[in-house]
Computed example of a mutant assay.
Amino acid sequence: MASITVNGEKRTIEGDPGTPLLWYLRDVAGLTGTKFGCGAGVCGACTIHLDGVAVRSCMTTVEMADGKSVTTIEGLSADGEHAVQKAWRQVSVPQCGFCQAGQIMQAASLLAQNSAPSDEDIVESMSGNLCRCGCYQRIHEAVKLAAGGV
């Protein structure tokens, strides 16, 4: 049994502690904003925050999250007004939108750790999140905007 806090709500999880956190979030908690992409931790579609740091929920087990705080895209901002979400809308980042929750969560984690990232910091932090539509320039612009750099 594991105890985690998801988007501010304490939860007890019973079952296999080796279950990827992604499946608990989507199938049990009903938080479907976190997407399944590759299942190998390389695409970033499943990015969440674990104690404030971006992680891939497909590679993070329930056991690894025990006693920790999890934030999903649904918990980033109750009204969608987080600085990154606002910048995403202002720049019109998404094309298909599938990867965007993971992109936003990665960007929010970067800005929480570094409020004034350089272009190199943004590229390095965001490089593990893939966008099949190739919206990288708009993603970069939105991260800079959210940081107050545009």
Rank of each mutant, 00 (worst) to 15 (best):
S77T: 11
Q85R: 01
W88P: 04
S92V: 15
C99M: 03
V84H: 07
Q103F: 08
A83G: 08
V84A: 07
S109E: 08
T72K: 02
C99N: 05
G67L: 04
G67R: 06
G97S: 03
S77L: 04
D79P: 06
V70F: 13
G80L: 02
G102M: 04
Q106I: 14
H82A: 08
G75N: 06
S92H: 15
A65G: 09
E81P: 12
K86F: 10
D79L: 13
Q95V: 11
E74D: 12
A101E: 00
Q100W: 02
S109F: 02
V84S: 07
W88N: 05
H82L: 04
A101M: 05
S77M: 01
Q106D: 12
K86C: 14
R89E: 09
A83S: 06
A87C: 08
C99Q: 06
P94S: 10
Q106R: 12
K68P: 03
A108N: 02
Q90S: 14
E81T: 13
A83P: 07
C99W: 00
L76S: 10
S69C: 15
Q90R: 15
Q106P: 00
Q85V: 00
V84P: 08
G75Q: 11
T71R: 02
I104N: 02
A65K: 01
A65P: 01
W88Y: 01
R89V: 14
A108C: 08
S69Y: 10
A101T: 08
Q106F: 11
P94D: 08
Q95G: 01
A108L: 10
F98N: 14
I73Q: 00
S69D: 14
T71W: 08
G102H: 07
E74S: 02
Q106G: 06
S92E: 15
R89W: 13
V84W: 00
S92T: 14
A108P: 09
A107M: 04
Q103C: 02
Q95D: 03
Q100N: 10
A107W: 02
V84E: 09
S92P: 12
A87N: 01
C99R: 06
G75E: 06
Q90W: 15
V70E: 09
F98Y: 02
